[in-house]
């Protein structure tokens, strides 16, 4: 995620003020979201894993991928309106139905000096 964002020349941060840099103009809110569902097989394995507890790696990966995708879409939107940074980024996750979740990333697109 990190490297992809750097290549895009878009700065993503959850700050309102970036030290040493000034915001030239605000371009409004940008967002990106994705809905992901669990793989039935992986879900079954996770169910077994649940007996002994611990980290569910497949789910961690799933959520990570979803978050990357949401961030990528947000950055894409920011780029399309001519921003070079997205500030005050927030993540939020909601489960829609059983086994499916929506990941949302949103922030303010700005042009920085």
């Amino acid at each position: 995620m990190a490297n992809a964002l750097l290549q895009d020349n878009i700065m993503v941060a959850n700050l309102e003020i970036v030290p040493g840099r000034r915001v030239r103009s605000h371009l409004g809110m940008v967002q990106g979201s994705t809905v992901r569902a669990k793989h039935a097989g992986k879900d079954f394995l996770a169910g077994l894993k649940n007996i002994v507890g611990g980290e569910l790696k497949s789910y961690t990966e799933l959520m990570q991928e979803a978050r990357d995708e949401a961030t990528r879409r947000m950055v894409e939107q920011a780029k399309s309106i001519g921003a070079n940074a997205v500030l005050n980024v927030r993540y939020s996750a909601t489960s829609i139905t059983v086994g499916a979740a929506e990941i949302l990333a949103y922030g303010t697109a700005v042009v920085m000096e």
Binding site: M1, A2, L5, L6, M11, V12, A13, N14, L15, I17, V18, P19, G20, R21, A46, K49, N50, I51, V52, G53, G54, E55, L56, K57, Y59, T60, L62, M63, Q64, R67, T71, V89, Y91
Partner: peptide, 22 residues
């Protein structure tokens, strides 16, 4: 951010984990 004069590079960093109980 703390009061600093030097320009800073910044980047969003995140870490996540899914954990289940036994």
């Amino acid at each position: 951010p703390p009061d600093v004069v030097t320009p800073q590079d910044c980047q969003l960093v995140a870490g996540s984990v899914v954990i289940s109980s036994d």
